[in-house]
Amino acid sequence: MNVVRPLLAGIASLCMSGAASAHFQLAYTPETMIARPGDVPVKLIFWHPFENGHVMDMARPLEFYAVHRGEKIDLMDRLSPITFTGASNAGAAFDASVPVKRSGDYVLVVVPAPYFEPSEEIYIQQITKSYLNRNTIPTDWEAPQGLPTEILPLNKPTNVIAGSTFTGRVLSAGKSIPGVGIEVEYMAAEPDMTTNTAGPATIVPPPAGTLVVMSDENGYFTFGIPKAGFWGFAALGTGPEKEFEGKELSQDAVIWIRAWDIE
């Protein structure tokens, strides 16, 4: 199924999947706009943040790095295992930090180990990007990172305005993927960086289940952003790898953006 990309900045048609909620890989820090140089704390969590739902045990990532001014900064030695506690359970997660020195964008990339989901009998690998910026100077946000699958933002991901739209392009091995479902998640419950616990969910998900938007014939999708905060988008099964340890693998592309109210 293809959806025609809006010629103007309209909201793409939404549909609802039957699932009650969506699991999303997080690379989270509450502050995305960095004023001073230093180490910025980050938490890596595999979770259901819309409704403060189930926390999945996260294995040590295969890769974790930042890209700044085109240069890759390996962050694997900055990972520390933690236990993150949500409303219903606790699960394995990771603390980390990103050295932010010069002005510009810092694209955080997490390549997690595949996670086995017993209820679906499949492995899930959500290759995730999120973004920091220092001093509002753009350097890297619009560039693809050469990942097996990724969502390329067409809006500056650290500076989306609530009430406007976000447009992305789904890529697999560098090529656009048409007609794919992209799950949409709002971070209604935000992690507490000190206690490794989830804050209360500030809103509840819509009653019909997970929000889904489709990519058009050129791999583009557009979603209207109704509320300030963190929004995640996951293009499901778009990666080139389809099997892991003899079972189906869903290799997903995830991107997190930050939306703001205009005061």
Rank of each mutant, 00 (worst) to 15 (best):
P61S: 13
Y65L: 09
G86H: 08
G224E: 02
R36D: 14
E243S: 15
T85G: 02
L154N: 06
Q25G: 13
T32V: 15
V204P: 00
E150S: 08
N196C: 07
F223M: 10
T194A: 15
R5Q: 13
I82M: 15
R169D: 07
A20D: 13
V212H: 00
I122L: 13
R169F: 09
R69D: 10
V40L: 07
S88G: 02
Q145Y: 06
A253M: 12
T139C: 07
P118I: 03
P81H: 02
H68N: 07
T167H: 00
F233V: 06
D105N: 03
Y131W: 11
G179L: 04
E243C: 11
P30G: 12
A143N: 10
R78K: 12
N218R: 10
N2Y: 03
W47E: 02
G219Y: 03
F46G: 01
E263T: 10
L7Y: 05
A143F: 11
R169Y: 06
P200F: 08
P49C: 10
E185D: 09
S88V: 15
T158I: 12
L75K: 05
R134S: 05
S215K: 01
N159T: 05
E190Y: 02
Q251H: 08
A113N: 01
G163W: 05
G53Q: 08
Y115K: 04
H23P: 14
R169G: 07
Q251S: 09
D95S: 15
A20R: 14
K43H: 06
L211M: 14
I161Q: 09
Y131V: 04
Q126N: 06
V109N: 09
R78C: 07
E190K: 13
S13A: 15
F233L: 03
Y106N: 12
A92F: 02
W260T: 04
M56G: 01
P61N: 10
A27C: 07
V40D: 05
E31P: 00
P49D: 03
A228H: 07
M187Q: 12
V110P: 10
Y28C: 08
L62C: 14
E190Q: 13
L26K: 00
H23S: 14
W47M: 07
N159Y: 06
D39W: 10
E120R: 15
G239Y: 13
F64Y: 15
T167M: 11
Y186Q: 09
D105C: 00
A198L: 06
T238F: 03
V111R: 03
N133S: 13
I82D: 08
I45E: 00
P114K: 14
F244N: 04
V109H: 07
D261L: 07
L154E: 11
A96V: 03
A90W: 03
T167F: 02
L108M: 14
Q126C: 00
L152V: 05
T238E: 01
D140A: 05
F221V: 06
N52W: 02
E120C: 08
F50V: 12
E217T: 12
G146T: 10
W260Q: 10
G219D: 04
L171W: 11
A235K: 06
G229S: 04
E117F: 14
M76Q: 14
T83H: 02
I257G: 01
M193W: 03
V180G: 00
V4N: 10
K247T: 05
V213T: 08
